[in-house]
């Protein structure tokens, strides 16, 4: 079978240790957590880091908790922990919807939310869910930490705001009342990357949509944040016509590329169709 090129291996014992290793080893070092994106790329020799810093022992980054009006998820929380978190499922069912269709149970046993977001694959599901949830991301370096908005996190395909000597430490989801959320994905087969996917979070007030987030996966060069669709929804009472209008904008504003999963026309159609379906379920959950 295919095997990675040689590299050196270090195991970090704390976040500080991981950061100092990155600082010392320089730009040819990569962090490895679940490894389910990085190792296949290394086997294909599309990636050949000289050093791997294993952060699987950083249990300080493995948590899902409510704190300061936010739901805070440590970057090392595994997909499976997200799926099994009653708290996350209750406050943000979009994450449970998404986790059920991310890869397969074995991959979910290893893969982490931090790894998923940092891979910055345009088809990655949690990025779209985080975009919809208006997530904020805590990035730590030896000099301290900074918080960036999800919209500023991805700099393009496979590129993020995390610097070479930094680590994504935490994902923060603002908690608000009367929330509902949902994730819809079309895949060619169980475990495949999305042909297209849409995530929606709504926050209701007096029967109207007080605020909303719409994020799409696999229909742009990174997770697509649908500002115009959100704009048309905000402040309005939910209706099929409203959802149609938002779906049309989501479809119009994405920029899919044709590949084996489908042509542009189909993916654009899915962006609209799945936005509509996610809106319906998110609103129903908020009102339910």
């Amino acid at each position: 079978m295919q095997v990675p090129a040689p590299f050196d291996y270090e195991r970090a014992t704390s976040v500080e240790h991981a950061l100092s290793l990155l600082e010392r080893l320089g730009p040819e070092a990569r962090l490895i957590a679940g490894g389910h994106s990085l190792l296949p790329m290394m086997k294909l020799r599309l990636a050949a880091p000289e050093h791997l810093v294993d952060i699987n022992d950083l249990h300080e980054l493995d948590y899902i908790r409510e704190e300061a009006g936010e739901l805070r998820i440590g970057a090392l929380a595994r997909h499976r922990e997200l799926l099994e978190s009653e708290l996350l499922g209750r406050r943000f069912p979009i994450f449970h919807d998404a986790e059920r269709v991310i890869a397969d149970p074995l991959v979910r046993n290893r893969g982490t939310i931090g790894g998923a977001l940092c891979q910055a694959d345009p088809s990655e599901d949690l990025s779209a869910a985080c975009a919809a949830a208006h997530a904020r991301l805590v990035i730590r370096g030896l000099g301290g930490e900074r918080v960036v908005e999800m919209a500023d996190f991805h700099r393009g395909p496979y590129e993020t705001a995390v610097g070479p000597s930094e680590i994504l430490a935490e994902i923060r989801l603002p908690l608000r009342e009367a929330a509902g959320s949902a994730y819809e994905k079309v895949e060619r087969r169980t475990g495949d990357w999305a042909v297209a996917a849409a995530g929606v979070c709504v926050w209701m007030s007096d029967g109207a949509i007080a605020d909303v987030g719409v994020g799409l996966a696999a229909v742009g060069s990174s997770a697509v944040h649908c500002a115009r669709a959100e704009e048309v929804l905000r402040g309005e009472r939910p209706s099929e016509e409203l959802f149609d209008a938002a779906a049309d904008l989501a479809a119009a504003d994405c920029s899919p590329a044709a590949d084996q999963r489908g042509p542009v026309e189909y993916k654009r159609h899915l962006a609209g169709e799945l936005t509509r379906r996610a809106l319906r379920r998110a609103v129903a959950r908020a009102l339910g």
Partner: peptide
């Protein structure tokens, strides 16, 4: 066993700390 290079087939599944993992996508060092 092993059957692919891309963690898709699961022929390499073993238990690590009681949970099934694909051993083609775990370094022995890890």
């Amino acid at each position: 066993h092993w059957g692919c290079d891309t963690s898709n087939c699961g022929a390499c599944t073993v238990l690590m700390d009681g949970e099934p993992v694909k051993s083609c996508t775990v370094l022995a060092a890890m």
